[in-house]
């Protein structure tokens, strides 16, 4: 965990350079969606930290697991206590790069396809992910959107057999962030 935090801080610090164009938000949005035979479950988090170095494409996320909100209190308890163990692993982190950031034209409003490569750390497990998304340039802001699937077993999250029909082994993750130019 300590290594992850240090890596996260180094990644953030590396986004700061004299000529860096840095975009940030502290109110990004992430949704988990599980579609199992007996139940559909959603969780929402609107307190996502994210930073983008537009010069290099460096891109980081950090999200507190206890900030995910579920419709049912029991689901939220099980999520924190039984599945992601949020006392032991309080956050999830993504550190990566928008590999085609050069294709995004900040002076031209529009929607641009992006490719994101990096490492997602959750529940103490770090895995490479490669996903696609979009950046919409709008009035000097970057509206980022992505939707992808995660296999919970990849992050050593175990779904007990007795709730196997209530929780899917694959969850859909939706990311929506509005990045604003940082005045640092």
């Amino acid at each position: 965990m300590r290594i992850t935090i240090i890596f996260f801080i180094i990644a953030l610090l590396s986004t700061i350079s004299a000529d860096a164009q840095k975009f940030i938000t502290k109110t990004g949005y992430i949704k988990f969606y599980s579609d199992a035979p007996l139940e559909k479950i959603e969780a929402h988090n609107r307190q996502v930290n994210s930073a983008l170095d537009f010069t290099t494409g460096g891109f980081v996320f950090k999200v507190l697991m206890k900030s995910f909100e579920f419709e049912k209190a029991l689901m939220q308890e099980h999520f924190n206590e039984n599945y992601v163990d949020s006392d032991k692993f309080p956050s999830a982190t993504f550190v990566g790069t928008v590999t085609n950031i050069k294709d995004v034209n900040l002076s031209q409003d529009g929607i641009y396809d992006i490719n994101v490569d990096g490492k997602l750390t959750m529940h103490g497990v770090t895995r490479e992910i490669h996903e696609k998304g979009t950046f919409e340039v709008k009035q000097e802001k970057l509206l980022g959107k992505a939707k992808f699937n995660l296999v919970v077993a990849d992050y050593k999250i175990t779904i007990p057999g007795n709730v196997g029909n209530n929780i899917s082994n694959t969850v859909e993750v939706t990311v929506e962030i509005t990045l604003e130019k940082a005045n640092l």
Partner: peptide, 14 residues
């Protein structure tokens, strides 16, 4: 409020 934790920049209360 409910303390969700510290994200290396801020302490978050919900």
């Amino acid at each position: 409020g409910y303390c969700a934790g510290y994200n290396d920049t801020d302490v978050i209360l919900e």
